[in-house]
Design a protein around this nucleic acid. Structure first.
Lengths: 162, 162
DNA sequence: TTAGGTGCAAAGGGTTTGCAAGCCT
DNA sequence: AGGCTTGCAAACCCTTTGCACCTAA
């Protein structure tokens, strides 16, 4: 039904190992998930509704959690909403969040990670995972439009850190 | 009623400037807040219930948000719960979170912050604030007790990153 | 055939809001 | 006195759960 991928194999293996099943819904959700950097459950629900309008939101939640268990996804909370990151494609990364629009830029920086390890070991811990979010004001052009998204942000209020 | 502090002055000024009022509830909550590094709304509600059992949870939420606006507090989300950090006392800091118990260690690291600025400016942003959480496994002693909290953690499951 | 999975709707937990009564200034 | 605040309860939002009906293996 879906074209075979390395990620599908990972999922199949995970399921087989514990007697779980590969369903049509899981295949559809995985395929959609692999096409993006990150999604919230509701976004995913909306996206796959075009493939099959009968898949329930609960199934989306259950499947995205499942993908986290396989290591293909990673859950991140922004405020009170959760996002699921596609780790399979890009590896671990951090987030630079625009405080004026909804844009989220992903990045990675080895030097920062190294310093994190240092802090942790100084405190008697080994890092298992981490989360770094930078909340930034975009540089605006003279006319008040955002250099990044092009919108006029003169009067916008800031998005607060979460 | 409460002993005067620099923080109380900051709050008074903020309120006066926009025609808001200093109430008994706000004084009680601020005084309690200044004694701790961070609190959740429910913890705060419980703590001040000893001073006045009639203060509602909604008032606690409203007041903690107010403290964020004054710059005395900063809201941080851990999973689906929010914590309010006492910025007034310690300045900005990051969190090292034990994945085995509920312990949260606060730290700050200038080198990491400098690298963050670098990442942001490379992407056309100036950092307004940030959030860094390290999720770590504590070093266990030979008998399986945690070097940090002293509890036996042999069989515990991990706390997941949020 | 038989776990395990699904959809739906209801329950949950944390946070916010509407409103009448209460309190600062 | 007038408007900001409060407490209470209901509303909200996102997420999880219970359950009878499906479905992969």
């Amino acid at each position: 039904m879906t074209k075979p991928t390395r990620e599908l194999d990972i999922l199949k293996l995970y399921l087989a190992k514990r007697g779980l099943k590969l369903t049509r819904q899981r295949e559809i959700i995985l395929a959609a998930f692999l096409k993006m950097e990150h999604v919230s459950a509701e976004e995913m629900h909306w996206i796959i509704s075009r493939k099959d309008p009968h898949i329930g939101l609960a199934t989306v939640y259950r499947t995205l959690k499942l993908l986290c268990q396989t290591g293909l996804a990673q859950e991140q909370h922004f405020g009170n909403k959760a996002q699921f990151d596609n780790v399979a494609h890009k590896g671990h990364h951090d987030h630079l969040i625009c405080t004026r629009c909804e844009k989220i830029i992903e990045f990675e920086n080895c030097q920062i990670e190294a310093l994190q390890e240092e802090v942790a070991s100084r405190n008697g811990f080994t890092i298992h995972t981490h989360k770094l979010e930078l909340y930034g004001d975009p540089v605006l052009l003279p006319d008040g439009t955002c250099k990044n998204c092009g919108r006029d942000l003169t009067d916008n209020t800031r998005r607060t850190p979460q």
